[in-house]
Amino acid sequence: MSAAPTRSDTSSCRRARALVALRHALNLGLPILFVLIPILSFVLVSFWTLQDGQIVRTFTLANYRSFFTEGSYLPVYLSTVWLSLQVTFVNVTLATAIALFIFRRTPRVRFFILMSFMLPLFMSYIIKVYAIRTILGQRGLLNEGLMALGLIDQPIEVLLFSRTAIFVALAVIYLPYAILPIYLALDRIPANYLAASADLGASALQGLRHIVLPLGRPGIAAGAVFTFILTFGDFVTPQMVGGTQGFTFGRIVFSQFGLALNWPLGSALAVILLATTLLAVALAGLTLRREHVR
């Protein structure tokens, strides 16, 4: 009996160690397998090239050179960045206001208002785009409504199939992704901070400026990053509501994977897209780090 526990101790110890090893392997292995390797594979393809419709596996920077020198890649890239920045700015402003509005309600009411803003997330993305189109169309809800009220006598044609339509559609679709992180950040602010500042005579505006917004910054940064990344990579919405203006960078990437079969160029453009989004994440991280140091 005295030897038995020792043996089972070592075996259970070994088993525990094996489990730990397995857990490490999974923790490290799954992200490598499902995230890192796919990304590295298209980074690799981006350095290959296309000859007579076949992919040639020689190392070249030609695809990246094409991005800067050929055709329409760079102008479309820049205009898409600009569009995404505009949507991000408007959405973060709106989402901050909405999050503040929710934050000021009583806890029970908060939940319902938050859920009502999150509801669109339960709906398919394509349905939302179609809905926006039926609202903005020349025979759409908005035009018919305005005409019925006698405010206009001809349908406003630029509502749909214009850059404005892309802007509106992207802002509407991605707003919940900005509200959620901002609200969650505000929700973590201890109530007694605000109570203390009020006791010490701070106005509501001062409380907002010196307590709520600084403490909410991580959420605001996260909301901005989410909006920018989602908007920048969206290649369906602009095409569907933008008419002849609906050609964005994501669309160019997409077009390389069809009959053009130009996977190397498509991959290089996708690497540029990825680098842009990583840059956005890094910038957001930087603003937060400065906050910590101070």
Binding site: E70, I252, S255, N262
Partner: peptide, 15 residues
């Protein structure tokens, strides 16, 4: 050449 046609079409759409 599909690749060339795609490039030309992209330029049309970006114009």
């Amino acid at each position: 050449n599909y690749t060339r046609r795609q490039a030309v079409w992209n330029e049309v759409k970006a114009s």
